[in-house]
Design a protein around this nucleic acid. Structure first.
Lengths: 132, 132
DNA sequence: CAGTATCCTTTATGATACTG
DNA sequence: CAGTATCATAAAGGATACTG
């Protein structure tokens, strides 16, 4: 144990966890902490149920391929539900599950952090780049 | 505005933001919501200041190359400070800045979410895979 | 409309060897 | 120890064309 423990908040004092659980958590984080997943999640959280094409418009910069891929993965992970309406032309809607919503809430703090600290980050980058 | 607004918690009712700010936030999220960044961030938050090699051991599965790369980027973004001790053999220590620490706190909710919902995710995946 | 399929380019990452 | 440099491969991602 290092001498830095006391200066860290209690939120980081996890109980010791099974390494295999930790590895699984890492895997989930790696899959879930994905740029497009977070953006689509945010769009669905902010705009509610949406059709495929609209979702693509709202998820700025995403390609159709990545949208399909991201949505399939999110569906598989239980973050969204896909509803196919048997009409022509096709109408498919996506919405967050409770699980997806809880992730959006958990990730919300990171969005706020990014929004709040944008300028600090840019300033830090500029200073770093200037120094070398 | 859709009819789903009322059922969403206040945390998602952002004021309208400049699209360019939103794009920048997306960029930061894309860069920061990176698997290795989150893992190294977590390790530094939990274990405090660490040397390069030790950091690699604690960040399970990371290669030396990715560790270097991730640390440089985090340093550039102002998340960590790199301290070189002029001794031989070299001793370089990394620790979180206040900014880095605040991100670790913001991201902490996602770790807890992942830990809490691991089994639900695995069950969902199994069901999804079985259905097709 | 909501995809799928394919080709192709870019980026990410790993393995290995080398150095102050 | 803490990297850097290089090579090689895998994975991510974009563009385009096609389909129920």
């Amino acid at each position: 144990m290092t001498t830095t423990v006391a200066q860290r908040p209690a939120v980081f004092d996890h109980p010791p966890v099974d390494p295999r659980v930790e590895a699984l958590v890492n895997e989930v984080i790696g899959r879930v902490a994905d740029k497009w997943t977070m953006i689509v999640l945010d769009v669905l959280a902010e705009h509610g149920e949406q059709r495929f094409t609209r979702l693509g418009q709202l998820s700025d910069g995403i390609s159709q391929k990545m949208l399909t891929q991201t949505l399939r993965q999110m569906e598989r992970d239980g973050l969204v539900v896909r509803t196919v309406h048997p009409v022509v032309p096709p109408k498919v809607e996506y919405r967050l599950t409770d699980l997806g919503f809880s992730l959006a809430e958990a990730f919300c703090g990171v969005w706020l952090w990014a929004e709040k600290n944008l300028e600090r980050i840019e300033a830090s980058r500029a200073a770093f780049d200037a120094a070398k």
